[in-house]
Design a binder for these strands. Sequence first.
DNA 1: TTTACGGCTGACA
DNA 2: GTGTCAGCCGTAA
Length: 251
Amino acid sequence: MTDPLLTRLAAPRAPTDTHLDLTDRLVDGWLRVPGPLGYLLVVVGARGVRYLRDAATGEDAFREEYRRRFARPVLASTGRAPRGLLPALRGQPSRPRIDLDDATGFERAVLAATARIPAGETRPYGWVAREAGRPRAVRAVGTVLARNPVPLLVPCHRVTRADGRLGDYMFGAAAKATLLRGEDADVDGLAALADRGVALLGRDTTGVVCLPSCHHARRITDAHRREFRSAAEALAAGYRACRDCRPALPA
DNA sequence: TTTACGGCTGACA
DNA sequence: GTGTCAGCCGTAA
């Protein structure tokens, strides 16, 4: 019904980026900023953060990769980090502007769904696929997240395998665990549940079933916690899906 | 237009 | 418990 292009054209222009000088408004610029695991290289365009990678990549490789991927050059920025970027990288609830104009519709849907995963919680790839409106495109979700232009800002480290293992990560599986622990996720507890084949946790007083990392699940007392190995098992026991973490239950 | 390739998943040894 | 395989699907070349 509404043409996305028209929507964008009709949108009010972004406020002037006072932290950028004229050059930065014409050409994307990269800068080096501290991140949770070490320094990062970040490309900032006039519309927001466009690209972020580990500084260990090396500046030359970083610039080359950016040029190849976005078909445009990137210069060293003379500006400072845009508003909100540094706090967001420190884990504070800050939302720097992110420019995903080059992403496809599917990529944007995947990144948007991933961005909705609360800090300290995890969701399976299949959950992201469902939230993105392509429930069977699980593998494709992995492909999108593997090339997430703005990791950390779009928290792809919170997307894990369906069996409870953490799965792979752009910066390495160990970094994924470190980041999650830094958000106070109970990585070891979740792994222990997964090892026992527990896929969902229910609260018998409410009949609501959650993904194990859901903040509601963490508050279930031992006396009222009910463990389920599958969604079908929870459904058969009369439980309904938590409205926050939205585990997939068969219809 | 076609093909190959994954940060996956579920089923079955 | 672990290993393998086929199926899945959006992208890039």
